[in-house]
Design a protein around this nucleic acid. Structure first.
Length: 154
DNA sequence: GCCAACGTTGGC
DNA sequence: GCCAACGTTGGC
């Protein structure tokens, strides 16, 4: 099993929105970056876990965890001109973009903000904290996973 | 709102 | 294949 971090802007889809979905499960559509796609398509598997991260929030930070709830499959929103992430270059016969379903696992009692994450020496190497990082899906090591959970102080 | 970092596009 | 121009992300 692998660990991940997935970003979302709470103004478009927050952890509360996920909680409101049937079975608190939703498809993670709209990823339009090749590196992020490759990780979802080639390395994510059902049962993997991911931190849910709110970007463009005040402060940005980790707000909970999700479980990967499906195999990767084509992101059909890329085929639909009405969709905001429509991509005319993605063909249903040769899909360019993929997604997975995610199920809410745990809503943290508090957000672990980005400044707080930066203060934790155990997370010094974390990809999220690297300068210029823009990936919306990224791997997290098992040590980093445990270190973040330990910050909840529960 | 600003801007640094990075990805993509397209002319050559 | 190079690289300038442009678009997007996302913290501040």
């Amino acid at each position: 099993m692998r660990y991940w971090l997935m970003k979302t802007e709470p103004e478009s889809f927050s952890i509360d929105d996920l909680a409101a979905e049937p079975d608190a499960t939703a498809c993670w559509d709209g990823v339009r970056n090749y590196q992020a796609r490759n990780m979802m398509r080639d390395e994510m598997r059902p049962g993997d876990r991911a931190f849910l991260y709110h970007s463009n929030a005040k402060p940005p930070g980790i707000v909970g965890t999700v479980r990967i709830a499906s195999e990767p499959y084509p992101d059909h929103t890329a085929f639909d001109p009405e969709e905001p992430h429509f991509d005319p270059k993605s063909d249903p016969d040769a899909p360019r973009w993929f997604m997975v379903d995610v199920a809410l696992e745990r809503r943290f009692t508090r957000k672990i903000g980005l400044p707080e994450l930066r203060e934790n020496p155990a997370l010094r190497g974390m990809q999220l904290l690297r300068k210029g990082n823009r990936l919306s899906v990224m791997p997290v090591s098992e040590d980093e996973w445990r270190s973040v959970l330990a910050m909840l102080g529960e």
